[in-house]
Amino acid sequence: MTDTVSFGYEDVAPGEKTRRVGGVFSSVASSYDIMNDAMSGGMHRLWKDRFVRRVKPREGEQILDMAGGTGDIAFRLAKSGASITVADINPAMLEVGIERAQKRGFDGLVWTEANAETLTFPDRFFDAYTIAFGIRNVTDIPAALREAHRVLRRGGRFFCLEFSTTLWPGFADVYDAYSHHLVPKLGKLLANDEDSYRYLIESIRRFPDMESFKGMIAEAGFTQTKVEPLLGGLVAIHSGWKI
């Protein structure tokens, strides 16, 4: 791991990034889903539906949903009858998810505070590992990918949904202007937190492009790695298998 890592457009010490990211998500936890709707025009719901269809959860499977604190992915996965463990480093996000689960009647989910880089689960424990819009906030992404590989059984599958860089001519410029200028203002209006949403946008810009991240997944030990671009790569579904 390098001496510095990106926190938005800043380069900071690894421990500083972990601390600051924790502050961001503690700040936005209660308004996170409202802001997702505002930032994506509600499209994040469609992306998450498609993501879970790609995972193909099955009854009786053990699935780890990492960085899944608010439960959005876990609720979708749980409908299959799979056993879902929701892990998140941020207790405020977990509190939001647990409250939502109680209201929706999802009683069988397991909720645990965990760091993606240093999981305490045993080797070869899960059938699938999912992470949606969380990997770019991890301080040491290669370490998190290695941990994902470690906790998966042979034949286990890894799926990641994350913002990336759209390759559509013209659309990239429009989205860039929208995200940099309007999203922080929406954060101020809806969550009274402009700085946190400015970071979230900047973190997308600093995240590796689709092919680079696909290579990182392969370096962690996964095979048959694939990437499925959505909106030309504005969002991407990455996947791999442990054999």
Rank of each mutant, 00 (worst) to 15 (best):
G108C: 07
A87C: 03
P122W: 01
M93W: 09
G97W: 09
T165R: 15
A148H: 00
L94K: 14
N90W: 04
T130P: 01
Y129R: 06
Y129L: 08
V151L: 01
E95M: 12
F126R: 08
Q102I: 10
T118N: 12
A128Y: 08
Y129K: 06
F121M: 01
T130R: 07
L161G: 07
T120I: 05
A101I: 10
F163G: 04
Q102G: 14
H149W: 06
F106P: 11
V151I: 09
R104K: 15
P142E: 01
Q102L: 14
P122T: 01
E113A: 14
C160W: 02
A143Q: 07
R124D: 15
R150F: 05
I135H: 02
T166C: 06
V110W: 07
I89G: 14
L145P: 00
I141H: 02
G97I: 09
F158E: 03
D88Q: 08
A92E: 15
R104S: 14
R124M: 04
R153D: 00
K103H: 10
A132Y: 04
E99N: 15
S164H: 08
T139F: 01
D107Q: 13
A128E: 06
D123C: 04
E95A: 15
A114I: 07
T165S: 14
P142W: 04
T166M: 04
R150A: 05
E147H: 04
D88E: 08
V138D: 09
G156T: 05
R136V: 06
T166P: 14
G108T: 13
R104G: 12
G156R: 01
T139R: 14
D127Q: 08
A128W: 09
G134Q: 04
K103G: 07
A92K: 15
R104T: 06
P122S: 02
E117P: 05
D88Y: 13
V96R: 07
T118D: 03
F133P: 00
A92N: 14
E99Y: 11
V138G: 02
T118Y: 03
V110G: 06
G155E: 03
L94N: 08
L109T: 10
P122Q: 00
D88S: 06
Q102F: 12
V151S: 00
V151F: 01
E99C: 12
G105P: 09
E117R: 09
D88L: 11
R154P: 08
W111A: 03
T139I: 07
W111E: 06
N137K: 03
G108W: 05
T166K: 06
E95R: 15
